[in-house]
Nucleic acid binder design. Structure first.
Length: 389
RNA sequence: CCACCAGAAAUACGUUCGG
């Protein structure tokens, strides 16, 4: 039975939920782990209705099963449902409580988070870190710091969470002090420092940290590149990218996005195309986020044909990708193209959002279609329930 | 009792305009 479960978990980890389900249906007998893995699979796919119905059918549940379901609700933004489930749990361990706390923190409901935290019979490093990072992300650095000071066993992640609190507020002096005191300066912590310095325009300090690091990952490179780009050092940014390739660091997907964004804002087509090749090599071309960034890059470089090719090749389009294409045409004065894409979007059944209409309406105004524009404007609230902003 | 069969924490992430 353990090996059957192993197969399920393998499929789930590779996002092959359908195959996981096949195994689940075929296996001679199932235990809690089988059920829980399956629920987990649906949760990570965002298939909450399947997850919930499976969860309800479970012959027996343990803490882990409950926690998986709890995590699903939290991830889905249904925090109050999550809380109800939490209250129903027959037993709650550290993990379950920490998960609930994290859910509140994500929504900025710190008081509720804190209360759960204070009521915990036992805490571990993760619970502490969760609470600290909750305060950090909601700009309550000083409260975070107080907790941090009394926290018993700090690990790398706790230090970094605290550090982020300062960098997000631009309080770099305090961040630097903390950074100096860190027993182990992890990669992530260094990246945080680079980003922090970049945010307040201190690119040289950022570069110092970057040069001091003895190992860097793609995040370090893209943090540095971003710092240059944001502060008007575009050429340095591109230079960094070249060096990164020379160092044979393979850009991963967020890094690619931020580099593509730079190419887009600088409208440097040849670099952009190199990166496109890179994207295809790394197989990120099947990612919606990357594809949208590519489209925008081509649009900004004035190459609408290529943009359109990327667009057409992609089957699982989401709103943002549609928007990229529509506004792309609109920006270049191709009102007809924009409207055509909008019609395609409509017939594909995708719901437009407010950004879509920015594109559509500006397309109308460029081409002097006052009447059509007015009609679209009307339909926003009447058909699509979007309020004009 | 132990070996990754299931659960929680840190940085970076796409579209318009603005900032």
């Amino acid at each position: 039975i353990a090996s059957w479960n192993g197969m399920i978990s393998g499929y789930v980890k590779n996002r092959m939920i359908k195959d996981a389900r096949k195994i689940f249906d075929v296996m001679p007998e199932r235990n809690v782990v089988s059920w829980t893995s399956m629920v987990r699979g649906y949760v990570q796919e965002g298939g909450m209705s399947e997850a919930e119905s499976l969860f309800r059918q479970m012959p027996e549940k343990n803490v882990v099963s409950w926690t998986v379901m709890l995590g699903g609700l939290i991830q889905d933004g249904r925090i109050d449902d999550a809380r109800r489930l939490f209250d129903e749990m027959p037993e709650k361990d550290v993990v379950a409580r920490t998960n609930m706390i994290s859910g509140y923190c994500q929504l900025g409901r710190l008081a509720e988070a804190r209360q759960l935290f204070d009521e915990m019979p036992r805490r571990n490093a993760i619970s502490w870190t969760t609470m600290i990072s909750g305060y950090s992300q909601n700009l309550q650095v000083d409260v975070a710091r107080k907790l941090f000071e009394v926290m018993p066993e700090k690990n790398e992640v706790s230090w970094t969470a605290m550090l982020t609190g300062y960098t997000h507020c631009g309080r770099m002096e305090e961040a630097s002090d903390l950074f100096k005191r860190m027993p182990e300066k992890s990669l992530t912590a260094c990246n945080v420092m680079i980003l922090g310095f970049g945010q307040i325009g201190k690119v040289f300090e950022a570069r110092q940290v970057f040069d001091w690091m003895r190992e860097k990952d793609d995040g370090s490179w893209s943090a540095m590149i971003k710092g240059y780009e944001r502060n008007g050092f575009e050429l340095e940014a591109l230079d960094m990218f070249a060096s990164m390739q020379r160092a044979r660091v393979r850009a991963n997907f967020p890094a690619l996005i931020s580099i593509l964004t730079i190419c887009a804002s600088l409208a440097v087509l040849n670099h952009g195309r190199e990166i496109h090749a890179e994207v295809i090599k790394s197989q990120f071309d099947s990612d919606v986020f990357v594809a949208s960034a590519l489209i925008t890059m081509y649009v900004k470089c004035g190459n609408l044909l290529r943009a359109r090719m990327v667009f057409d090749r992609f089957t699982m389009k989401d709103v943002v990708m549609w928007n990229s294409m529509i506004t792309g045409y609109a920006q270049h004065g191709f009102g007809e193209g924009a409207l055509q894409v909008f019609r395609e979007m409509h017939s594909s059944g995708m719901m437009p959002d407010d950004v879509t209409f920015v594109g559509v309406l500006s397309a109308c105004s460029y081409t002097g279609r006052i009447k059509e524009g007015m009609e679209f404007f009307e339909s926003m609230s009447s058909v699509y329930m979007i309020k004009p902003t």
